[in-house]
Simulated assay, not measured.
Amino acid sequence: MARLYILLFLVQIVLAVCALISCLSAEEGQIRVLPRIVWALIILFFPLVGSIAWFLAGREPKPGAAGLGKIWPAGSAAERQPRRPLAPDDDPEFLRSVQDRAKQQDEELFRRWEEDLRRREDDLRRRDDPPREGDRPEV
């Protein structure tokens, strides 16, 4: 019988540790009903009940997850806010503007290279072609 109590105690501790880690690592928009610090205190002071309450009521259920999370009303803080990229490199509009700017810079550089190449070719032609007898010297 003592082994059963030890096993149940260890399960309770593992559940509380998992709930505490989940609570502390959750994003602000994923926490429901109470603030994060209150959830952490509930989990610490009432490990079994607090852990079960956290997993059922405290965190936002993952999309497509089955279970008791479906009974809570939709409309969490995360759903009410419009989705926006987290970083500039996740924003398609920003990426498109970077690509357009790079394309314009590449075209400008290519145009300058072509002009420089034409100028150099013209200079080489003038140097290599000796003046013919009917030609006037350039002034």
Rank of each mutant, 00 (worst) to 15 (best):
F94R: 08
L86R: 15
D106S: 13
K62F: 10
A77E: 14
E121H: 11
A78E: 07
A77T: 15
L95N: 08
V33L: 06
I31R: 00
V49K: 08
W113M: 15
E28G: 08
P73R: 06
L24G: 10
I31T: 03
K70D: 07
R101E: 14
A74N: 06
P63E: 06
L68D: 06
L109Y: 14
E60K: 03
Q81M: 14
P47D: 01
D106M: 13
F45A: 04
S25T: 15
Q104C: 10
L124T: 11
P92D: 01
G64A: 06
A87I: 15
W72E: 00
A65I: 03
A102E: 13
R36W: 07
F55R: 00
I42G: 01
G29Q: 12
K62E: 13
E60V: 01
V33G: 03
L68Y: 08
V33A: 04
F55W: 04
K103P: 06
E93N: 09
G69N: 02
L68N: 04
S76C: 02
R84Y: 06
P85M: 06
E108W: 10
C23F: 00
A57F: 10
A65P: 02
G64E: 03
W113E: 15
R36M: 06
E121L: 12
W54P: 00
P73K: 03
R32Q: 04
L41S: 08
L41V: 12
G67L: 04
A77S: 15
D123T: 11
W39P: 02
R111D: 13
F55V: 03
Q30V: 10
F94W: 08
I31C: 02
A102D: 12
A74V: 07
R118V: 08
Q81S: 14
P82R: 06
I43T: 00
F94V: 12
A26I: 01
D123R: 12
Q81H: 14
F110H: 15
A74M: 05
K103T: 14
P61A: 03
Q99Y: 06
E114K: 15
R101D: 12
G58R: 02
F46Q: 07
L34S: 05
L124D: 10
D91G: 00
R119A: 12
Q99R: 13
R80S: 07
Q104H: 11
R118G: 06
G67H: 00
P92I: 04
A87Q: 15
I71L: 08
E28N: 12
A53T: 04
R36G: 05
A40H: 02
D123G: 05
W39E: 00
E60M: 02
C23S: 03
P47M: 03
A57G: 09
V49A: 09
